[in-house]
C-alpha cells in the first residue's frame, strides 16, 4: 500500500486542547498537566484509508499562537487544518473566524478544514451551542465535530473524516527538479559530479 504523508496543522487559541487532541490521537493518552508542547516539531500517525495509508504529520503551534505570532511557514504545504475551540469558552469560538481568515490568507488554497469543538465532556458548563458551531462550519464547507481528548471521544473520527476528504493523489509531477528534504545522509544516488 502506498503511504502518503499529509501535513495537518492545528490552529486555535491557547488552552483549547490542541496538543491534547494530538496526544490522544497519536499516543492514545491524556495528561492533565501537559506542558505546552515541548520538543515535538510534529507528531505522526499512520491510518489506512481506502487503498492508501495516510501518514499524518501533525504540526502543533508550539505556542506561537499565544501572542498571535504564527509564522507563515507553519501553514506551508498543509493538506488539512484542524481549528480547535473550547465548547466551554465562548471567546475561543469567537476567535475561530480570525483563524479561518488567517488560514485563507496563509494556507494553501485546497486545504481541508476541520472544526473541532473540544472538551465536550464538560457539557454542563457549555457556552457554545453545537448548532451554532455546526452552522458556521457548514457555511465555510468545513468538517465539524465535537471532541473530548480527555474521554477519547471522536478524536479518531475527526482524523477519519479528514482522511476521507483528502482528494486522491494527483498525477505525479513531470517536474524533474522536485523539491526534497535535507537529511543526514545525502540521497543514495546523488553520486559524484565534476
Amino acid at each position: 500500500m502506498a503511504i502518503r504523508e499529509l501535513k495537518v496543522c492545528l490552529l486555535g487559541d491557547t488552552g483549547v486542547g490542541k496538543s491534547s487532541i494530538v496526544c490522544r490521537f497519536v499516543q492514545d493518552h491524556f495528561d492533565h498537566n501537559i506542558s505546552p508542547t515541548i520538543g515535538a516539531s510534529f507528531l505522526t500517525k499512520t491510518v489506512p484509508c481506502g487503498n492508501e495509508l495516510h501518514k499524518f504529520l501533525i504540526w502543533d503551534t508550539a505556542g506561537q499562537e499565544r501572542f498571535h505570532s504564527l509564522a507563515p511557514m507553519y501553514y506551508r504545504g498543509s493538506a488539512a487544518a484542524v481549528i480547535v475551540y473550547d465548547i466551554t469558552k465562548l471567546d475561543s469560538f469567537q476567535t475561530l473566524k480570525k483563524w479561518v481568515k488567517e488560514l485563507k490568507e496563509h494556507g494553501p488554497e485546497d486545504i481541508v478544514v476541520a472544526i473541532a469543538g473540544n472538551k465536550n465532556d464538560l457539557g454542563d458548563i457549555r457556552e457554545v451551542p453545537m448548532k451554532e458551531a455546526k452552522e458556521f462550519a457548514e457555511s465555510i464547507a468545513a468538517i465539524f465535530i465535537e471532541t473530548s481528548a480527555r474521554n477519547a471521544v471522536n478524536v479518531e473520527e475527526l482524523f477519519q473524516k479528514i482522511s476521507k476528504q483528502i482528494p486522491p493523489l494527483e498525477n505525479p509531477e513531470v517536474d524533474s527538479n522536485k523539491s526534497f528534504k535535507l537529511t543526514q545522509q545525502p540521497p543514495p544516488s546523488a553520486r559524484r559530479c565534476c
Binding site: A62, G63, Q64, R66, F67, S69, A71, P72, M73, R76
Partner: peptide, 24 residues
C-alpha cells in the same frame, strides 16, 4: 521552496518547540 525567508522562520519554530516565546 517558498523562498529564503522560510529559513529564519524554521529556526524560530525550533526555538518555540523548545519553549521559546514569540511576540511580533
Amino acid at each position: 521552496v517558498y523562498g529564503l525567508g522560510e529559513i529564519p522562520q524554521c529556526f524560530c519554530r525550533m526555538c518555540a518547540v523548545f519553549g521559546g516565546i514569540y511576540c511580533l
